[in-house]
């Protein structure tokens, strides 16, 4: 399944002092997959675009912290 966030499992040592974070994630934003933007990309309306930070729907990739995600974020 395609996702804009990837995960990995870091090594957990027996002597690590802090409780381990078993899964780390990082962002792989849409610009990495587009190369050269084709003509006629789908667009947001002007007010939506301002809120989204981009006019182009395929480029929209909002970031939320874990507390915001627990509340479901607030995507457009």
């Amino acid at each position: 399944m395609f996702t804009l966030y990837k995960t990995y499992r870091p090594f957990v040592g027996p002597f690590d002092p802090c409780p381990p974070i078993r899964v780390k994630s990082f962002s792989t934003p849409p610009n990495l997959y587009i190369g050269f933007q084709p003509n006629n990309f789908p667009q947001f309306t002007p007010m939506e675009a301002l809120r989204a930070g981009t006019l182009w729907k395929p480029l929209y990739d909002p970031y939320y912290n874990s507390r915001e995600l627990a509340k479901g974020g607030n995507p457009l």
């Binding site: 587009i34 930070g53 981009t54 939320y64």
Partner: peptide, 19 residues
């Protein structure tokens, strides 16, 4: 979030410039 999204768009434009 708006500012972060702008980085994504700018990055794409610079990648296109390389092409």
């Amino acid at each position: 979030r708006f500012l972060r999204e702008r980085e994504i768009v700018h990055s794409l434009r610079f990648r296109e410039a390389v092409e």
